Simulated assay, not measured.
Amino acid sequence: MNDAVRILLLPGWLDSGPGHWQTRWEALHGDRRVVQDDWEWPKRGDWMARLEEEILADPRPAAFVAHSLGCQLVAAWAAHSRHTDRVRGALLVAPPDTERPDTPPQLHGWRPIVRQRLPFAATAVVSTDDPFCAPERAAEMAAAWGATLVQIGARGHINAESGLGDWPQGRQLLDALLAPQS
């Protein structure tokens, strides 16, 4: 992978805890977590503004590694930012369906889901038994975003409870996404 590309970790609702693969990647690979001001009642505009600040704070190109609501953040940010050319790609892991009737009220501000094609390469990684998104809905989002869909079987919400550890397969997907195209 190109060392000049900085990896920005975009956790979802309530952040990623100590056993989460994003937290492990932060420690193992030196990836940078984008810290939001409010993890409990996330406001889409506030999260987008924070991501924009992070992009503008460093001139190096970035790659996003988003989990859950972080995937919705990437889509919303990309639809509004004038700085999408600074992003080399996005690994979108376990995008949630925030339009489901059982969506917690804290996440209603993330409706409707932004379905604009992403202006950079993307890979969406989904599980067949994600409790927050049916596989069909995840496939629809990936298609709308122009992302390559990778199904990894029954791994729940692809989080700490999924038993992924350092999730080397996820890192391989990121490396492939960012590999120079010949």
Rank of each mutant, 00 (worst) to 15 (best):
residue 6 R to N: 10
residue 8 L to G: 00
residue 8 L to T: 04
residue 12 G to R: 01
residue 15 D to G: 03
residue 20 H to M: 02
residue 22 Q to M: 12
residue 22 Q to C: 10
residue 23 T to G: 01
residue 25 W to K: 00
residue 26 E to K: 10
residue 27 A to Q: 09
residue 31 D to Y: 14
residue 31 D to R: 01
residue 36 Q to H: 12
residue 37 D to R: 11
residue 38 D to S: 11
residue 38 D to W: 11
residue 40 E to W: 11
residue 44 R to S: 07
residue 45 G to Q: 14
residue 45 G to W: 11
residue 46 D to S: 15
residue 53 E to P: 00
residue 53 E to Y: 02
residue 66 A to C: 13
residue 67 H to A: 01
residue 67 H to P: 09
residue 69 L to T: 14
residue 72 Q to T: 15
residue 72 Q to G: 12
residue 72 Q to L: 15
residue 73 L to F: 11
residue 79 A to I: 07
residue 84 T to M: 07
residue 89 G to Q: 00
residue 91 L to N: 08
residue 95 P to K: 01
residue 96 P to K: 00
residue 97 D to P: 10
residue 99 E to V: 08
residue 99 E to D: 15
residue 101 P to K: 05
residue 104 P to W: 01
residue 104 P to I: 07
residue 108 H to M: 13
residue 110 W to P: 07
residue 110 W to I: 10
residue 111 R to W: 12
residue 111 R to L: 12
residue 113 I to P: 13
residue 115 R to A: 14
residue 115 R to L: 14
residue 117 R to S: 15
residue 120 F to Y: 13
residue 121 A to G: 11
residue 122 A to P: 10
residue 124 A to M: 14
residue 126 V to R: 02
residue 128 T to N: 14
residue 129 D to I: 13
residue 132 F to L: 11
residue 133 C to M: 12
residue 135 P to I: 06
residue 140 E to M: 04
residue 144 A to M: 08
residue 148 T to K: 11
residue 149 L to W: 04
residue 151 Q to W: 02
residue 152 I to Y: 00
residue 152 I to N: 01
residue 154 A to S: 09
residue 156 G to C: 09
residue 157 H to S: 04
residue 162 S to R: 00
residue 162 S to V: 09
residue 169 Q to M: 13
residue 171 R to A: 02
residue 172 Q to G: 14
residue 176 A to N: 05
